[in-house]
Each structure stands twice: as C-alpha cells, then as structure tokens.
C-alpha cells in the first residue's frame, strides 16, 4: 500500500511526458505554461503553508527573476547576452537575494508587518518599471525573441515539465528534512518553537529566501517560454491567482497547490469563459474565481482536497 502514491506519482510523470503525443500544440503550450504557474503556487506554499507567514508579494520575486533574466539574455537592452540557463539561475538568485534582505528586515517582527510590507512591495517594483523605463521597457515590456532557451512548443513543454519536476522534488525534500520540521514548528507556535531553541527569524528568512528563489526561477522561465517580459508579472491579479490555487489545493501540502494550480490555471484560460457566457450573468471569470476563493476561504480553510479527504475518511470510519 505504501508504494501506491509513489507508483501514482510515477504514472503522472509518464502521462505528462506522453501528453505531446495526443494533445495539439496550442493546448500543450497552455499546459506547459500551467506547469510554470504551478511552481509559483508551490513556492508560495513553501513560505505560507509551512511557516505560516502570509506573503502577499510573491509576484515581486516572479517579476524580479523575469526582468533580471530577460535583461541578461538579450543583447538589445544592456549589451550582454549570457547563456539563457545561466540567466534563469541568476534570475532566481537575484530574487532570493532581495528576498533575503526583505526577510531579515521584516521577519524579525511578528504579526501583520510581514504581510503589510509584502503587500506593498510588488507595487514598488512595478513603479520601477515605469520610472526607469529605458531599462525595463515601461508598460509594454520588451521581447527576448531569438535569445530564448527554448524555441519550439515541444521543447518549451518539456523544459517546463522538467523544471516543475525538479522544483517539486527539491521543495518536497526541503519540507521533509529537518529544516522543514522547523518551519512547521514555527507555523504551529512561534513561542513554542523558540522555547525549544529554534532561531525562528533565521528559519523564517530561510523559507522566504527559498520560496523567492523558486519564484524567480519560474518568472525567468516564463519569459523564456513566451519571449516577452512585462510589468503584469508583478501585478496583483497574478498574486491572487497564486493564492487561490494554493488555498484551493490546501496549504502546507506541496501537492495540493500543485493540483490547485493546474485546475485553476486551466479553468481560467480554457473553459471558464465559455461557462460564464452560457449563464449570461454580468460577471467575468475573475469575479467567479474570487467568489470561489472567498467561499473556500470561509467554508474549507484547509483546502478542498484536505476537506474531502477528511469527510470521506469520517464516513469510512462510521
């Protein structure tokens, strides 16, 4: 019995790898993009679900990774063109570095301050794009076409699948390790964690840095995937979509946000609009998603899957 989840995981990977055989290119492109989005949701979960610190500015690091990589990759902006893979990694490191500085300043304090600062951060970074538009390209962003890591839809798909698998494996490993246990101790009670000798600030910052790193990597990967970078990678709607996915899937589970991200992203970009058109209500897909988020937040704050599992579990016991 114990091997079944592993077997299932293996099967999932096989299915994902085989998808290009059966699925047309345009949907493959969307699914690949979904994998990159899933990394954002999972990395957010690493911070929020495991240490309990509500990061409302995850997109700061998505955008940072994206812009840093894009600037380093195309010679048209700053005259340098390093290898895309190196640019992506540097994008992740830059995000992690900024995360480190913000973390050591804000995570010393308990309560709401971390949420407040991170809520404002993406807006600040978005302003930098407009103010220094010679560098960042302002509202319209810029293109890195011709200097991207991947150029066919098939290679894009496998690239993002690989990145997702590596990220999930890495983050799984982190949360299963002793570090992960300390994260969870902080989440459950900071006082208690401190009393047993855990340097809570240190571990909160560590979680934040790791989470930012993966967000930066994914941001940089998105740029390589679609060839353009723009300020919407910093913006609030993306943040909400990340939150929605993670909350839907269940915080503190890694796999939950993964599934949540896939469902939400495909729904938003695929069938939700048609569904709304049928109902002919004066709403758009974002209204529906936000309503779902509120409902889940109130009714099942531990996520749909967690809730289902518990309910089914109860029934089996009776």
């Amino acid at each position: 019995m114990k091997n079944i989840p592993k077997l299932f995981g293996f099967l999932m990977i096989l299915v994902s790898a085989a998808l290009p055989v059966v699925i047309p290119e345009a949907y493959l492109y969307l699914i690949g993009l979904t994998y990159l989005f899933a990394i954002l949701a999972i990395s957010w979960d690493l911070m929020v679900g495991y240490t309990g610190q509500v990061n409302l500015g995850h997109t700061t690091f998505v955008g940072l990774g994206a812009y840093v990589a894009a600037l380093l990759q195309t010679p048209l902006r700053m005259g340098i063109a390093i290898h895309p893979l190196a640019a992506i990694i540097i994008g992740g490191l830059a995000a992690a570095l900024v995360g480190f500085f913000i973390g050591i300043i804000t995570l010393r304090l308990r309560g709401y301050y971390f949420s407040l600062v991170t809520a404002i951060l993406p807006l600040v970074f978005m302003q930098t794009v407009f103010v220094w538009r010679d560098v960042f390209g302002g509202e319209e962003g810029f293109s890195i076409a011709g200097y991207s890591l991947v150029d066919t839809t098939l290679s894009k798909y496998y690239f993002s699948l690989a990145l997702l698998l590596i990220s999930v494996a890495a983050m799984r490993w982190i949360v299963k390790s002793r570090i992960g246990l300390r994260f969870m101790a902080i989440r459950d009670s900071e006082e208690l964690a401190e009393s047993i000798g855990i340097d809570t600030t240190k571990y909160k910052v560590l979680a934040f840095v790791l989470s930012s790193f993966f967000a930066g990597i994914a941001g940089a990967a998105i740029v390589n995937y679609r060839y353009t970078v723009g300020p919407e990678l910093y913006d609030v709607p993306l943040m909400l979509l990340i939150i929605l996915s993670a909350v839907l899937g269940g915080l503190g589970t890694i796999y939950g946000p993964l599934i949540g991200a896939v469902v939400i992203y495909l729904a938003k970009n695929w069938w939700l609009r048609d569904l709304i058109e049928i109902t002919s209500l004066p709403v758009n897909d974002e209204v529906v998603l936000y309503a779902v988020l509120i409902a889940i937040g109130i009714l099942m704050p531990h996520g749909i899957f967690h809730e289902l599992r518990e309910r089914v579990g109860e029934r089996v016991k009776h």
Partner: peptide, 21 residues
C-alpha cells in the same frame, strides 16, 4: 490571519471586477 487577509482581498477585487464589467 491568513484567511482574513485572503477573504477581504478577494472581496475587494471581486467588487472591482463587477464594477469594471
């Protein structure tokens, strides 16, 4: 705390989108 922030933020954006549409 997490859910309070998420619920009110989602409500804010929900209302914004309804007005927009």
């Amino acid at each position: 705390e997490v859910m309070v922030i998420i619920v009110t933020l989602a409500l804010a954006l929900l209302i914004q989108q309804i007005l927009l549409v």
